[in-house]
Nucleic acid binder design. Structure first.
Length: 255
DNA sequence: ATGCCCCCGTCCCGGGGA
């Protein structure tokens, strides 16, 4: 069973790339983020035609998350508890082949300090509560997505360039490690403990050709999932295509 | 040097992204 997370930066603009990725047989599940469209406008039929099912939690213009798979998707939950007035579509959870998976689009948090950074930290606390509930279930769980957190210095091309940024701020990183300390495993870092494993390259300033990337897309595995971890990697292919997303898929394989 | 690029919206500029 292979699971990939991919911030597609508009499902409408990236539909062809995503369909090709599905058809290529790289993965059994895609946890997608930044759809930038409503559920009504999600191209369900295009996926149905290639034998894939979808569960979506969309929003006009901004955010939006989905779970895509050729296998049956059940018990879908959208959103996190704790802030009923929050209308941003950033969390969806479902069961596929006995695996509980979530697609997460964590708030960016810039500019910091400010209300957007406060929202990011509150959102991470809400995610922490849900992650704790899930781990208590002792099911195999994968919390995948764009966490908008650079965990360690090794995960960015230039530590100085990110100093003070919401993605690299000590509060963001501490909240990320608090998630791990519940008992979750960072799949990619477990398989590749050293070296850069970037998942995002800015569109600007030639970041991609210069490999000025950061690692912000993560797959967090509960113990029952981590026990089955076989492999994990960044798939740089899609980032090199014409009209690419600024993120590329990160995947893991479970036995 | 927080602009460079890219995507969206009832749309030719501005907000948001990271």
């Amino acid at each position: 069973m292979r699971i990939a997370t991919w911030n597609v930066n508009s499902m409408k603009a990236r539909l062809h790339h995503v369909l090709e990725y599905c058809k290529a047989g790289h993965t059994d599940i895609i946890l997608a983020q930044e759809l930038k469209l409503t559920d009504e406008n999600f191209p369900v039929d295009a996926f149905r035609e290639i034998g894939w099912q979808v569960a979506t939690h969309g929003q006009k213009t901004y955010n939006g998350v989905a779970i895509l798979s050729p296998h049956e998707i059940s018990d879908v939950i959208c959103g996190l508890d704790g802030e009923p007035e929050d209308e941003q579509a950033r969390y969806i959870e479902a069961t596929i082949s006995g695996l509980r998976v979530a697609s997460i689009y964590l708030p960016n948090g810039n500019p910091r300090p400010g209300p957007k950074f406060d929202y990011k930290l509150r959102w991470m606390e809400r995610l922490h509560k849900r992650a704790a509930q899930l781990i208590a279930s002792e099911a195999p769980i994968i919390l995948g997505g764009d966490y908008n957190v650079i965990p360690q210095p090794i995960d960015c091309y230039d530590e100085k360039a990110w100093e003070g940024d919401a993605l690299y701020h000590p509060d963001s990183r501490a909240a990320f490690f608090r998630l791990l300390h519940l008992g979750y495993t960072d799949a990619l870092r477990t398989i590749h403990p050293s070296g850069e494993q970037y998942s995002f390259w800015d569109y600007q300033a030639g970041a991609w050709p210069k490999n000025n990337g950061i690692r912000i897309d993560h797959l967090l595995l509960s113990p029952e999932a981590a026990n089955r971890l076989q492999d994990a990697a960044v798939d740089r292919g899609p980032r090199g295509l014409e009209k690419a997303s600024d993120h590329t898929p990160v995947w893991c394989r479970l036995s």
